[in-house]
Design a protein around this nucleic acid. Structure first.
Length: 112
DNA sequence: AGCATGACGCCTA
DNA sequence: ATAGGCGCCATGC
């Protein structure tokens, strides 16, 4: 157990905590989360952290999309269409092209 | 140590 | 508006 791994785990926990505060009906992005955590160049690591989430985690990871409103984490929610269904059930609206309407649904906690 | 991979995002044409 | 190129950085082999 090296310190690098510990830090990665702590980062992972911080990501989950922030994801848990995303309001129902809203979405945020990997980059937005990274910035909020003071690590603006770690958008990829945010995705990595979510990929490592265990089944029983309560964090609503389906509310995290990429900066274009594309559901890039869709594959982690079982059958195709599941992630979108979860979001629509919460009132998230989609554009005709299948992307989330970011202009109206983006949630940004800002730097803390 | 080097190379590939990825739930990313900015810049450019 | 959008597709490609490229920078970024943790992980695994």
């Amino acid at each position: 157990m090296h310190s690098e791994v510990r830090n990665a785990k702590r980062f992972q926990q911080e990501v989950y905590a922030l994801v848990r505060s995303i309001p129902v009906g809203k979405v945020t992005t990997y980059g937005t989360i990274a910035r909020a955590l003071g690590a603006p160049r770690h958008a990829r690591q945010v995705g990595q952290a979510l990929a490592g989430m265990s089944e029983d985690d309560d964090a609503p990871a389906h509310r995290v999309v990429n900066c274009s409103g594309v559901l890039t984490g869709e594959h982690a929610f079982g059958p195709p269409g599941t992630m979108r269904a979860l979001l629509e059930a919460e009132g998230v609206t989609f554009r005709e092209d299948g992307r989330v309407d970011m202009a109206r649904r983006l949630w940004d906690p800002g730097p803390e």
